[in-house]
Write a protein that binds this DNA or RNA. Structure first.
Length: 491
RNA sequence: CGGGGUGUGGCGCAGUUGGUUAGCGCACCUGCUUUGGGAGCAGGGGGUCGUGCGUUCGAGUCGCACCACCCCGACCA
């Protein structure tokens, strides 16, 4: 199959593309900027969805579905929201095609122009708040805690598989609350859910914090994000949660009667993560042999590869594997048995490494004799011979170990690549050199942020929640600063 | 949108100063032998050379135009 991939050192972007394609996660499509998520990639997304959905339900949310199309007029209601999205909206103008008069294929029927154009949703705040208006009368109707799993379209100039595509899959939570405090708490709760998911399930350390004004979501009062560091030293925003204040309630006139009988605007939040998480997963853990997936999100955790000479030997191995698989299934481990006869073991080893299966178990004649199996772990590529007695317990422990090891490695990388700087010169040399996260004092103004972005391409990823107050001077203007901001070049 | 690159069987590529039947590796099909790190041999199938127009006795090769995709940058989750 000759599936070699470009090394990270040689060309990081190419390495990333190679993994996506050769691990079978996704393909380019006939539509510019849009990708085909292949079964293996979609299986990863389903694992992500399943766990997040569980966490959303545990925090009291329900799923619903709102339309793909949004009347154009809805968009203009909230001024900064329109401005933020106007440049990347796909617009539906007609509802019919017809045969071309000159017989040259099919054309848009100009007689079928829509009265009002429809926007293909880039996000659903407007259609949802237009709906909430009719759902909310009194404080007894609140809170409304809704999530939807959907596709959205943002017409990007330049796309990259999973990281930025014209159409992508995501979830968007939209909640309505009676008080400001409750909405703020909700926005904070959900960014914490995302952080927990990233750390515990993706084995990916993240920095949680507040966005600067320039990086804030269009239409939000406050945006919180989780920021992850990729292996090339660039930051990736992995999830966002917005406190929307009363902006959308005012734009869509959503008022409620509070318990004192007074009329007030509803408080809102929205929050989302997308298939971009798969890109994050790839760039957080994978190596030059291919994809590395954390056990908790791997579609299949263990693959069995038989090694045999004769049909009879294969049959004996298959029956042992069948028992072992049953044992593993009983303790909740997912497995696959690759008994294809047209590939040799070595080929299969390479293939499952490319696809990032956390554990590979080889079993051959020697193992049948000794009651053992050969267990290889994807994260370290180490192999060991293990007794096939009580294999379940061993595998459970090993999966856990791999999950933890991936997180520790990524955390160590993040630590090694987070630099505290106290001057602009130092800042520039770190950003231009080793890259990574840079913690620096900033005077809090968009002007200074713009200068830094202009001169170094680094942006403020967030102002971390857990950073201690610390007096200092802005690295650019020298003005007083009470806290360090987290800078990086970002995806 | 600017800069760079690439379009030739499924994939990766070669194809000379234009020359007739367009090759190679991998993959695929059949058979036999193999199987503890990407198997070997034998036989076989598969290509209007991205599209269009032009130059020419003759175009994968030369010219013009167009299209698509990738990489780098500006915009963004």
């Amino acid at each position: 199959m000759a599936k070699e991939i470009t090394s990270r050192n040689e060309n990081y972007s190419q390495w990333y593309n190679d993994i996506v394609i050769k691990a079978g996660l996704a393909d380019y499509s006939a539509v510019r900027g849009c990708m085909i998520i292949k079964p293996y990639g979609y299986a990863v997304w389903e694992k992500i969805q399943a766990q997040l959905d569980r966490m959303f339900k545990e925090t009291g949310h329900q799923n619903a579905y709102f339309p793909l199309f949004i009347p154009k007029s809805f968009f203009s209601r909230e001024a900064s929201h329109v401005e933020g999205f106007a440049k990347e909206c796909a617009v539906v103008t007609h509802y019919r095609l017809k045969n071309d008069a000159s017989g040259m294929g099919i054309v848009v029927d100009e007689d079928a122009r829509l009265e009002e154009e429809l926007i293909v949703r880039p996000t659903s705040e407007t259609i949802i708040w237009n709906t909430y208006k009719s759902w909310i009368q009194s404080y007894r109707d609140l809170p409304i805690l809704i999530n939807q799993w959907a596709n959205v379209v943002r017409w990007e100039m330049r796309t990259r598989l999973f990281l930025r595509t014209t159409e992508f899959l995501w979830q968007e939570g939209h909640t309505a609350h009676a008080t400001r405090q409750e909405a703020v708490e909700e926005a904070e709760r959900m960014i914490n859910v995302y952080a927990q998911f990233a750390r515990e399930w993706m084995a990916m350390p993240v920095i949680m914090g507040r966005k600067s004004e320039a990086e804030r979501f269009a239409g939000a009062v406050d945006t919180y994000s989780i920021e992850a560091l990729m292996q090339d030293g660039k930051a990736l925003q992995a999830g966002t949660s917005h406190f929307l204040g009363q902006n959308f309630a005012k734009a869509f006139d959503v008022k409620f009667l509070n318990s004192e009988g007074a009329l007030d605007y509803v408080w809102a939040t929205s929050w989302g993560v997308s298939t971009r998480l798969i890109g994050a997963l790839i760039m957080a853990h994978s190596d030059d042999n291919g994809l590395v997936l954390p056990p908790k999100l791997a579609p299949t955790q263990v693959v069995f590869v038989p090694i045999y000479k004769s049909r009879e030997e294969l049959d004996r191995i298959s029956s042992v594997v069948s028992q072992l698989r049953n044992e593993l299934h009983a303790v909740g481990v997912t497995t696959h048995y690759d008994d294809r006869d047209n590939y040799k073991p070595g080929f299969k080893f390479a293939e499952y490494e490319m696809k990032g299966f956390p554990i590979r178990i080889a079993i051959g004649p020697k193992d049948l004799e000794n009651g053992t199996v050969e267990v290889a772990r994807r994260d370290t590529l180490q192999k060991q011979i293990v007794s096939s007695n009580s294999l379940g317990k061993f595998i459970i422990g090993l999966l856990d170990d791999i999950q933890n090891n991936l997180f520790s490695k990524a955390l160590e990388f993040q630590r090694q690549n987070t630099t505290v700087v106290n001057s602009y010169d130092e800042f520039k040399s770190v950003i231009a050199g080793k890259g990574g996260f840079v913690l620096a004092h900033w005077d809090g103004t968009p002007e200074t942020e713009a200068i830094i972005k202009d001169e170094t391409k680094a942006t403020i990823r967030c102002i971390p929640f857990d950073s201690k107050p610390e007096e200092g001077k802005c690295i650019v203007t020298g003005k007083p600063s009470m806290q360090r901001a987290l800078f990086a070049q970002a995806y």
